[in-house]
Amino acid sequence: MNHSSLPESQKEVGSLWIDLKTLMAVRNLQWRAQKVVDGFQTGLHRSPKHGFSVEFSEYRPYCVGDDPKTIDWKLFARTDRYYQKRFEDETNRRCYLVVDQSKSMQFGSIAYNKYEYARTLAATLALFLLKQRDAVGAVAFDQHVSDWLTARFRTGQFQRILSILSKSCSGLSTDLVAPLEQIANLVKHRSLIVIISDFLVDPDLLHSPLSFLRARKHEVVLLRVLDPMELDFKSDKPVLIRDMESMAERFVDPIMVRESYKRKFDAHSNALQNVLSPLGIPFVDLTTTDPLELVLSSFLSTRQAPTGQRAS
């Protein structure tokens, strides 16, 4: 299943993880990431699902017609059997963290907003991947790509990533089409592209740039970050709602519109899913209250899932 959200059972034990409110209250993004990754790795040993990795090396019996270059001769020496060794260079894999910096990401009905959550998540992922010796890059975008950092594995790369993520939301509207096309043009090598956004755009528009990315053999993961209020639109009194991007005002009585909101929201999600499923792009729904360790875990399980993206 490509579309996933965090399991309820895991959320219930959220108290075991770092308190997000406290975490977000700390301004230092590096500290936040460090704490999450530390907590995650500590928890990892307790977890029954240990032993997985970002890179999955695989031995396959050699078949006639395979390239003989791929035969692992060392293993042949030990076992006297021909095995093909695949993904030999996984450790040098490149990953781009693409973070939405549009105005809508600034919305938050709780103590912190979506962008705060999104960049903490991005920093956490970056630190986690760097610790696995992967090359990590970062891209910030609103209606176009505003910051670009090529994926590398070198000293100070994490600091550079943090400097990009530390910038506040300056953009106006979310336009995923143009940034994704830019990314596709800029990223030459096959990479893992993690897009963190609220995806409040027409899903049909995403089809073409995502297809483009997939056509260039990139792995794509979508992490949708939503505020709890965006899920159910729970409010008790009528308010004048102002769109943070278009600044359009609309008088809304939550009691009257809640049902239709939910209906439209679900329809949007389904449409998004319908776009992503044929492309084999995993899609994770996150709310800003979800523990980051769990998100990390969920991300990794997504990577493990048979999406078919590995086929090269």
């Binding site: 308010v239 709602i241 102002r242 769109d243 909101y261 929201f265 949007h268």
Partner: peptide, 10 residues
């Protein structure tokens, strides 16, 4: 007035 991420669902 309440700012909201998007009014497309409202």
């Amino acid at each position: 007035v309440m700012d909201f991420s998007s009014v497309i669902f409202l």
